[in-house]
Design a protein around this nucleic acid. Structure first.
Lengths: 127, 127
DNA sequence: ACACATATATGTTAATATCATATACCTAAT
DNA sequence: ATTAGGTATATGATATTAACATATATGTGT
């Protein structure tokens, strides 16, 4: 049973935007200047409406650092475990722009579908 | 190098809506009553703006038939190879409605991001 | 001593998208 | 004749991702 929409598919996913969390992270880092992973977790849910798997988040952050969209450094934390603090890089900012363009296109596709769907329903009602 | 946006990621994908082709197929079948796979290929590109991999399309159609969102029958074709003609089922129509709701939500997420992105650029300009 | 929130990270697995390839029919040109 | 090209359906291989589980460790409150 599909988790996203409750449909009869045995899939776990439907309608997710692939790797959407990456531009969301970059946008948050652009606004907040620097954040640690656990803080991003909450920020993403509040600010971006993204529910994020914690394991997925940390792995994504390591991946993003590997390709130099973000950089990180360890900071001591008296109130708990030490934190790795992330900052966006120039490459990250460039990618954010590209991603925003790409997602604008995704948005157009979505609207084409949703308009088509509403249009169909409208026609059915007038029959 | 990412095909979708040209970014430095080694990924093949970014910004794709997962299994978006399924509701698109169902919408087309709702409007056209019945179509064969090869016809859907062209219809999806024109009507839905979806570029579809042909292998992916046929595999998706078989999957959708297995879970009974569509049904098919073979039709003879004098002008070429025989065709499997697909029709949407009641379950398929129900799923289309659910998918449309789910995608409306996806759309909201996207807008939240895009608004946030534009907002950030606006603030940067006024600095 | 124990539970709990904070904080980071890895192992495993199923599903998906992409690319390549295979098969077969019909028409038109060489 | 046979080759090329459009139509039509389908499968094999592979990389990537998302989801879920689990591990580790620190500080606070009971």
């Amino acid at each position: 049973m599909c988790k996203s929409c409750g449909c009869s598919s045995r899939s776990r996913n439907f309608g997710n935007i692939e790797r959407f969390v990456e531009p969301c992270i970059l946008l948050l880092l652009s606004k907040e200047n620097s954040m640690h992973g656990y803080g991003l977790l909450k920020g993403l849910e509040e600010h971006c409406g993204e529910k994020v798997d914690i394991g997925n988040l940390y792995r994504t952050l390591r991946r993003m650092e590997a390709i130099e969209w973000v950089k990180s450094e360890w900071n001591e934390n008296d109130a708990g475990p030490d934190r790795r603090t992330y900052t966006i890089t120039k490459e990250g900012s460039e990618y954010l722009e590209i991603a925003a363009q790409s997602l604008t296109n995704t948005d157009k596709l979505l609207h084409k579908f949703l308009d088509g769907y509403r249009n169909m329903n409208q026609n059915n009602k007038t029959l």
